[in-house]
Nucleic acid binder design. Structure first.
Lengths: 249, 249
DNA sequence: CAATAACCTGCATTTTAATGCATACTGCTA
DNA sequence: TAGCAGTATGCATTAAAATGCAGGTTATTG
């Protein structure tokens, strides 16, 4: 294994967990701890990581988009990401929204997946483009201050021209009675256009949001093909959704 | 087997696996490792691949998000940012490229400036949108792995529809003889379209790059209205530019 | 403050790279 | 087609890089 591969792997681990232990790396990569230490030292000298006793930590403390430490319900979102990856196949064309869950997902996409991603979120785009075999296309437009995704008429126009295999959306409100709902009118318009542009629709949501609803309706539940939460599908909290015409993950 | 065939084969391998080992290639192609190395060296010099100890890796291979505190020549870039801010007035419409200098600038824009920014760089967009009174519009398109800006025909089409007051571009190569130059064909196309979409053009460049030139021409110096470096305009290193029909900062 | 884990330094070994040189091949021209 | 210049290839040698190990040193922890 090439040194560069190792270091990329380490970097990836750090981006994922924000820390690494020398011993873990030694085991995972099947190399001596000395080599691990030398890698860490080298990377630290290049300023890529912060070396500490026992391993290393990321520099994301200084990062302007501090999406690393403070993400609410990070554990759950990581699990959702892992499950969503199962829906992704080679040569798919995927359209994604924004949100922390989507960013977790973008980080965790397997390095060998070859696919095209459209996204309205610059943060998601930047994460996706780190993966060698992904083609990333930003749907540009006005950047919303509150949600950090592109909104507005131009986004909707661009979406009218594409048709993708799978749309991945985070949910703000989600209930059997009200369907999928959101609080921002502009965002709702964009989400609707995204759904129209897609053959299949997957909703990613932490279980906590199930049963809640917001003021504006995005779509009915019957438009949704997959519902992905951190809970196992048979969990009793999911009972309300087990009857519906959608696949639970 | 011809050299070109071999190198094409190597290129395919790299595109496929994003890396090659010299020993593997030697076995697969039934040639000596020396020849493999000479091929790799040649291809690396042409910038097609990145040669590393033990083989080579693809050019898009770079470490994610390392551009934070270790930005090259950060001091200078901050000074450039400070000077550029003087060009910005309320209610202006500005178009910006990407690059570390531009990000430094985006961070430093005064909080009370009220303006509209178009940009092809998601990183710049995310910095700009933190400022309360700025409207930020991403020009979307395919996200380039090497330069982290949007490129391609759709970008150029969108640029054809707008006209802005000021265009801010970083320079890759810049000299009296060759004008502004760059190394990436796609980026050149986008930069040209950006210049066409703007009434005034400001080039931001560290002094080190003055006098250098890359393979592809972006534009002549006479299209440039402002040249901003970290040096004072009267510095002797700037003498070549003091005569020209552009304003030095 | 003792036990343990992590760290650093120098060294030996192995792997990979670079260099100079001899040989072989290519595409010309007379 | 012989001769020739230029290039390509392989081999031998030397240089450099990477890796693991032994040992002594420094942090961390209870």
């Amino acid at each position: 294994m090439l040194k560069e591969e190792r270091q990329a792997f380490i970097m990836r681990q750090i981006n994922l967990h924000n820390k690494v232990l020398s011993t873990d790396l030694s085991t995972m990569l099947r190399i001596s701890e000395d080599t691990v230490r030398r890698d860490l030292k080298e990377m630290a000298e290049e300023g890529k990581i912060l070396k500490v006793h026992g391993g290393a930590i990321g520099r994301s403390f200084h990062h302007p988009f501090n999406t690393e430490n403070m993400v609410y319900a990070q554990e759950a979102k990581q699990q959702i990401a892992e499950k969503t990856i199962r829906l992704l196949k080679n040569d798919m064309v995927v359209l994604t929204g924004g949100g922390t869950t989507m960013i977790e997902l973008a980080k965790r996409i397997p390095e060998n997946l070859r696919a095209t991603f459209f996204t309205i979120s610059p943060l998601v785009a930047l994460q996706l483009v780190e993966h060698t075999h992904l083609t990333v296309i930003s749907i540009g437009g006005q950047l919303s201050k509150s949600s950090n995704v592109h909104i507005g008429a131009s986004v909707i126009n661009q979406l009218a021209d594409i048709k993708v295999d799978l749309c991945l959306l985070g949910a703000n409100g989600f209930s059997v009675e009200e369907g999928m709902t959101d609080s921002d009118w502009e965002v709702v318009q964009v989400k609707r256009a995204m759904i129209r542009a897609s053959k299949k629709l997957a909703i990613l949501s932490i279980a906590e949001k199930l049963g809640s609803s917001q003021r504006m309706k995005v779509c009915d539940l019957n438009l949704i093909h997959y519902l992905i939460t951190e809970l196992p599908p048979e969990n009793h909290l999911m009972s309300a959704y087990q009857q519906l015409d959608l696949e639970l993950f």
